[in-house]
Nucleic acid binder design. Structure first.
Lengths: 125, 125
DNA sequence: ACACTAAGATACTCTTAGCTT
DNA sequence: AAGCTAAGAGTATCTTAGTGT
């Protein structure tokens, strides 16, 4: 599991940015960036969130709470999938987030999926 | 969109904890909790992550970056669902994260889900 | 160029104690 | 009891300037 500083440095290098470049982007000194990367300082929540937005990662990833940029917290996933069951309104709001074979899952497909699992389980009894 | 302080207060009240209770849990003063809740102070990243773990929420939610406790970042969800398509090994690793009707989705059910959607789409053509 | 270090000034955070409701 | 406020001590952070690679 990496630290905030390691994550920041890695994300910065991935963009080919110098500490100076990043400092200019966030309107702070180069030294501050270096301090963050060596885990000698921690930025404000506001700057933390700006960084997450800039690098397009979650704050959980940025602070080193999850290891893989492509992984998500188990709790988050559970809550998301649970939310699919609640109301059609909520499904409509979230449905465009899911892809299978690179194609978004439609509203109807999500509803059918849940029905499919429920039917399967009922038959098993 | 709520602030960190508002999130903290709401999560604490949901557990029926007093500021004193929470202070004892995190080994800090009651006053510090109050300061956080009024957005007059920000805790260290370490404490922030401890809080997220204790309340079982993401740091993104705790700092007010996402609005609904049941929602997650679109990017995270997309990446998660995409990962379901790759290999059976990955499915096995992630499958226990999903619940429907409070019951975990089995490995077979996940495979069937993907096949189900693919079959449906193939028939539509 | 780039990154790190030093040092002073500034600003923030923490606790204790007292106050309010 | 519960939460808020004040104030001082302690600590962290920020920038500039200088050093090293």
């Amino acid at each position: 599991m990496q630290s905030f500083g390691q994550r920041l440095r890695s994300l910065r290098n991935k963009l080919g940015f110098s500490q100076k470049d990043l400092a200019a982007r966030f309107q702070i000194s180069e030294s501050a960036i270096g301090m963050y990367e060596r885990d000698q300082r921690e930025p404000s929540f506001d700057l933390l969130q700006n960084m997450a937005a800039f690098f397009e990662v979650s704050v959980d990833y940025l602070v080193g709470r999850v290891d893989d940029p492509k992984s998500v917290l188990a709790e988050d996933v559970r809550l998301f999938v649970d939310s699919l069951e609640l109301t059609e309104e909520e499904i409509l709001n979230k449905i465009n987030l899911i892809n299978i074979d690179g194609r978004p899952l439609s509203r109807d497909e999500a509803i059918e999926f849940i029905a499919f699992i429920r039917t399967k389980r009922a038959m098993e009894k």
